[in-house]
Amino acid sequence: MTPYVRPERRISRRTLLGSAGLAAAAVGGLSACGGGGDGGAGSSSGGSAGPVSAKTSDITVGGGKVFAEGQAVITQPAAGEFKAFSSICTHAGCPVADVTSTINCNCHGSKFSITDGSVVNGPATQPLPARTVSVSGDTVSVS
């Protein structure tokens, strides 16, 4: 019986460079959602954590607003009660998208409480970190 001999296979330069480009794009795409894993302190686009201020009238009662530039979300669970949280999802480091009756991350469907930032719907298992909020007159500020 004659042993099988694998024919020599050559990869063209074009194929090699194309494959390397696809691999780089895949790694870049995966890293866009941040550090991965729960408690992820991954980076996100849209600025860095910093001070934010808004008019109290801009924050709806029973809802809230996301401030991408300061990586903050301000909510008003009850009239005159303002809360603030990090706007970076603890599941994969994506920025949260919007606030309805919950704080919503569109990357993987996590939802957080507007009252305390706790997880309402996974896959996240860690709450959104609270931020310091203060109200002066008709201005709400987050630091």
Results as ranks from 00 to 15, higher is better:
residue 73 V to F: 05
residue 2 T to S: 13
residue 80 G to N: 00
residue 20 A to G: 04
residue 69 E to P: 07
residue 13 R to W: 04
residue 16 L to W: 13
residue 111 K to Y: 01
residue 41 A to N: 14
residue 54 A to L: 00
residue 126 Q to T: 13
residue 84 A to M: 05
residue 53 S to A: 12
residue 115 T to R: 13
residue 4 Y to L: 05
residue 32 A to K: 10
residue 112 F to M: 00
residue 137 G to E: 03
residue 137 G to Q: 03
residue 129 P to M: 06
residue 28 G to Q: 04
residue 68 A to Q: 12
residue 8 E to Y: 11
residue 37 G to N: 08
residue 20 A to F: 12
residue 114 I to V: 10
residue 37 G to I: 07
residue 88 I to L: 10
residue 57 S to R: 10
residue 42 G to L: 05
residue 7 P to A: 10
residue 55 K to V: 05
residue 84 A to T: 01
residue 80 G to A: 00
residue 113 S to T: 08
residue 66 V to Q: 01
residue 131 R to A: 07
residue 135 V to G: 08
residue 73 V to A: 08
residue 23 A to S: 14
residue 104 N to R: 15
residue 113 S to R: 12
residue 56 T to I: 04
residue 1 M to S: 01
residue 75 T to P: 09
residue 115 T to C: 07
residue 81 E to H: 12
residue 101 S to P: 01
residue 8 E to I: 15
residue 142 V to W: 05
residue 73 V to L: 06
residue 39 G to L: 03
residue 69 E to Y: 12
residue 47 G to E: 04
residue 23 A to T: 14
residue 8 E to P: 11
residue 41 A to Y: 11
residue 73 V to W: 04
residue 92 A to F: 13
residue 70 G to H: 00
residue 79 A to T: 10
residue 57 S to I: 00
residue 113 S to V: 07
residue 110 S to I: 05
residue 117 G to H: 08
residue 96 V to K: 11
residue 77 P to T: 04
residue 1 M to K: 00
residue 127 P to I: 09
residue 104 N to L: 11
residue 48 S to N: 13
residue 92 A to W: 06
residue 88 I to Y: 07
residue 101 S to H: 05
residue 140 V to A: 05
residue 95 P to D: 08
residue 100 T to I: 11
residue 94 C to H: 03
residue 140 V to D: 03
residue 56 T to V: 09
residue 66 V to N: 08
residue 132 T to P: 02
residue 68 A to T: 11
residue 54 A to F: 03
residue 122 G to T: 10
residue 61 V to C: 05
residue 22 L to S: 15
residue 115 T to Q: 14
residue 31 S to W: 13
residue 20 A to W: 08
residue 43 S to I: 11
residue 60 T to C: 01
residue 11 I to H: 12
residue 135 V to H: 03
residue 41 A to W: 07
residue 127 P to S: 04
residue 61 V to T: 15
residue 47 G to K: 09
residue 55 K to N: 12
residue 121 N to P: 01
residue 142 V to N: 02
residue 43 S to A: 15
